[in-house]
């Protein structure tokens, strides 16, 4: 069993009004040293495949086809083997 941890974030060129609102709220809490905020999505995929390469191949395809919209988002992921339970 393998665990894929996937992060999807907006490309830098994409306006993210939610992140701007979050940053403004931080400033209202007096965390005025926060200069920028980026918001993203985090996914954990448990994959019942034989090898780390299989897990990476499938995770890559899932990111391309579903988890990220290549027009506005980028993704990165790490795959690790889970200890037998």
């Amino acid at each position: 069993m393998f665990l894929a941890q996937v992060h999807v974030t907006y490309k830098p060129s994409i306006l993210d009004p939610q992140a701007v609102a979050i940053k403004n709220a931080m400033h209202r809490l007096n965390f005025d040293k926060v200069e920028a905020v980026r918001q993203g999505k985090y996914f954990e995929l448990s994959l019942d495949v034989a090898t780390a390469t299989d897990a990476e191949t499938q995770t890559e395809a899932i990111c391309e086809q579903l988890l990220a919209n290549p027009n506005m988002e980028t993704y990165r992921y790490e795959v690790k083997e889970l200890a037998n339970q």
């Binding site: 009004p17 939610q18 609102a21 919209n69 027009n71």
Partner: peptide
């Protein structure tokens, strides 16, 4: 239609939230 690739581009959050 944009997500399905039948039209180009994407629809983002409105600028003013």
């Amino acid at each position: 239609l944009t997500e399905a690739g039948l039209l180009p581009g994407t629809l983002q959050h409105n600028r003013e939230m």
